[in-house]
């Protein structure tokens, strides 16, 4: 392996992350109670993105990993976003 030291995350951090994931899940349900029209989907997606970020960083250990892995994940997300944007070039302009 490379010279990055094995990082050990304390249980407490995992519990905090777990708790925040649960809170965010509840929030993404609660937000549908407010009348936001078409923005409620956007709201739910924002909560989901924050949750994804937490899972990737802590549970999947990305925060403590090599830079190259972060770049890979970043590129993959960029490709995904580009695919979604291009698909909507069809739906929005129809």
């Amino acid at each position: 392996m490379d010279n990055h030291s094995k990082h050990i995350v304390p249980y407490k951090t995992y519990l905090i992350i777990l708790a925040s994931l649960i809170v965010l899940t509840i929030l993404s349900i609660l937000i549908t109670e407010i009348e936001l029209g078409e923005y409620s989907t956007a709201g739910a997606l924002i909560f989901a993105s924050v949750k994804t970020f937490l899972v990737l960083s802590y549970f999947m250990h990305l925060k403590f990993d090599n830079l190259i892995l972060k770049i890979f994940v970043g590129l993959v997300i960029a490709v995904f976003v580009a695919v979604v944007v291009i698909t909507f070039m069809d739906y929005i302009h129809r």
């Binding site: 695919v83 291009i86 070039m89 069809d90 929005i92 302009h93 129809r94």
Partner: peptide
């Protein structure tokens, strides 16, 4: 490999996509 991700719409020119999507693809 990279640009290849963004050209799929050329299979759908007659499927009823928006004009914007047509020229973009």
């Amino acid at each position: 490999a990279f640009v290849g991700y963004f050209v799929w719409g050329h299979h759908m020119y007659t499927a009823g996509m928006s004009d914007t999507a047509l020229w973009l693809f």
